[in-house]
């Protein structure tokens, strides 16, 4: 019985790793870098996440690309809740990690996305190069491989 459970768990982890479907959520400059990652020079399709799903139901990777303002935060929260259970978040860009340069001098920027939703991977640099976004994706995959799968098969 043990062998079956562990093999199912390994299969579950392997399948989750290789098909992370990102949600088309792009607010500002990092959104353009996310688009150029899905273009043909730095191909994110190699990692199986080329399908950019429009509706949050079918997406399981939320790349918060761009600045999060006060008016937009309730919408981001609702998007996060609508996503199906094993979901992961990459905070892309300095504005999403910690409010970036707007942290001390802007009245309408939320100081970091982690005040609202739990974040798995922080990606600084403004805007991060497409290679560093792929590097973040690889680190996310490594992280999922080690820790227990979460979701249903805890």
């Amino acid at each position: 019985m043990k062998i079956i459970m562990s093999s199912i768990e390994k299969l579950y982890k392997w399948s989750r790793l290789n098909s992370l479907w990102p949600l088309t959520y792009a607010t500002s400059c990092c959104g353009i870098e996310m688009m150029s990652v899905s273009a043909s020079n730095y191909d994110i399709a190699r990692f199986g996440s080329e399908v950019f799903r429009g509706s949050p139901r079918q997406a399981d990777l939320l790349i918060v690309a761009g600045t999060l303002t006060l008016k937009m935060s309730p919408i981001l929260l609702r998007l996060y809740e609508q996503m199906a259970e094993p979901k992961y978040v990459i905070a892309m860009g300095a504005c999403a990690c910690s409010g970036g340069m707007y942290r001390n001098s802007s009245y309408s920027v939320v100081k970091g996305v982690d005040t609202i939703i739990p974040v798995d991977i922080y990606l600084p640099m403004c805007p991060p190069k497409p290679e560093s976004l792929i590097d973040a994706l690889i680190k996310l995959r490594k992280k999922l491989n080690d820790k227990n799968p979460g979701g249903r098969f805890v």
């Binding site: 991977i121 600084p124 560093s132 590097d135 973040a136």
Partner: peptide
């Protein structure tokens, strides 16, 4: 060096 992605904030 541009690979700066990390899991928790304080090693940034």
């Amino acid at each position: 060096n541009y690979e700066l992605a990390s899991e928790n904030k304080n090693d940034l």
